[in-house]
């Protein structure tokens, strides 16, 4: 039961913050000649370690700019740690921003295949789940319409339906439980809870301690790139609520 699925060991991530962002060759050459390139080092994550076992649901709490999204991106494999290592077992379904892989000139149907391909699935696998995805998104009538004519809610519904149609071992949620109207939101929360019952491992980012208490059974708090609390969800949420109220004073 206590088999580690996500193992984050001493992860640090360094960003070079440049005061003036130089993104063209002309300026770069001029600044190098004038010796005006200065970088400020910024550790977005600093020696972060934790493990999540199979079936555990870890809430990640923290203020804006604390490094939560950086952490999720590192676990999803988008960002590589400057130091330390990240190990993840099994298929990851990152739901960091729904619909990130859509092509707006493509129709809904074509986008299902494209999005699935972006997530690394084969054509056959997507074909098998195509009907299920369309049914869940309730967009049957719009499958031959280019995505650029979709509303943002329709896009998010389609994105959610594709991302959850697979059976991932690890689900990364970045405040995406606010998709579409109230009815669809209830439906999507139910789908995610169903996935919990199948023993999925979850990494959930939120500011909302109520939501975290409802969904997770463990939590960590990240502040200024460091883990400052790690443990049972209620204890950690109490600490976070206290931090928030102290901040208000």
């Amino acid at each position: 039961m206590s088999e580690p699925v996500i193992k984050v060991e001493n992860v640090s991530i360094l960003f070079n913050l440049n005061k003036e962002k130089v993104d063209n060759l002309k300026e770069y050459v001029i600044k190098v000649l004038k010796r005006k390139i200065h970088f400020t080092e910024f550790w977005a994550l600093n020696d972060v370690s934790f493990t999540v076992n199979k079936g555990e649901r870890l809430g990640v709490l923290g203020f804006n700019g604390a490094g939560k999204s950086t952490l999720l991106k590192t676990v999803a494999g988008v960002l590589k740690p400057t130091k330390g290592s990240v190990e993840v077992q099994g298929v990851i379904a990152p739901m960091i921003e729904l619909g990130a892989g859509f092509d707006s000139n493509y129709t809904g149907k074509e986008n299902i295949y494209l999005y699935g391909a972006t997530m690394g699935y084969s054509k056959k696998y997507i074909e098998e789940r195509y009907d299920e995805i369309v049914a869940f998104s309730e967009l049957e009538k719009f499958m031959d319409v280019p995505i650029k004519n979709y509303s943002s809610g329709m896009r998010a519904r389609l994105g959610f339906s594709i991302a959850t149609a697979v059976e991932p071992e690890v689900l990364i949620l970045d405040e995406v439980l606010s998709v579409g109207d109230a009815r669809f939101r209830a439906k999507s929360e139910k789908k995610i809870v169903d996935m919990f019952d199948k023993g999925i491992t979850v990494l959930f980012v939120s500011h909302n301690t109520d939501q975290v208490r409802r969904i997770c059974n463990k939590a960590i708090i990240i502040d200024k790139g460091k883990v400052i609390a790690n443990g049972d969800v209620n204890e950690v949420c109490d600490i976070y609520d206290k931090l928030v109220s102290e901040g208000k004073k």
């Binding site: 740690p81 190990e87 993840v88 077992q89 494209l114 391909a117 690394g120």
Partner: peptide, 26 residues
């Protein structure tokens, strides 16, 4: 345990070959 750090070139290619054909077609 699958290490993201040392992702394998050949494995990646096999896994994402459908993405490659989708990009070309698109």
């Amino acid at each position: 345990l699958q290490k993201i750090k040392n992702s394998n070139f050949v494995q990646d290619f096999l896994k994402y070959r459908y993405l490659l054909s989708e990009i070309i077609r698109r």
